[in-house]
């Protein structure tokens, strides 16, 4: 049994309460009409199957019923982190030991600037 930390409930819960929903961070193509069949097929059906660090989408099905992401090592089954939707993982294939604190801080600033830009873009 896994003991999984729900970032919304802010505590560890039994695996029984959760459900795995496959690979995380799959962006829908901005303009589906302009996709080739291959691009659309990749988006719909083709998933990564890495050995090592993998980002997954999970849902706290019996609980707060929110979706969130888990970074998991597919070799050792170790759960490295859980993080909310919209956040970036700290552990990635490039940084298996975790990103240094400066990188995390820089990404946060960039994300916030991006968010402001997008909101202003919507208003304009």
């Amino acid at each position: 049994m896994f003991h999984i930390y729900c970032p919304y409930c802010e505590e560890h819960r039994e695996e029984e309460e959760f459900h795995a929903k496959g690979q995380a961070h799959i962006a829908r193509p901005a303009d589906p009409e302009a996709c080739s069949d291959e691009q659309w097929g990749d988006y719909l059906f083709f998933r990564d199957n890495p050995r090592g660090i993998h980002h997954e989408l999970w849902v706290h099905a019996v609980g707060c019923r929110k979706f969130f992401n888990i970074t998991r090592n597919t070799v050792s089954y170790e759960i490295l982190e859980t993080y909310k939707m919209g956040e970036r993982p700290r552990f990635t294939a490039e940084h298996p030991e975790g990103k240094p604190a400066e990188t995390v801080a820089a990404e946060k600033v960039a994300d916030e600037a991006d968010m402001v830009e997008r909101q202003e873009g919507v208003k304009a």
């Binding site: 819960r13 029984e16 019996v62 609980g63």
Partner: peptide, 9 residues
């Protein structure tokens, strides 16, 4: 909390 109870919730 909302949780599992006797396989129901």
């Amino acid at each position: 909390v909302t949780t599992v109870f006797a396989k129901a919730n």
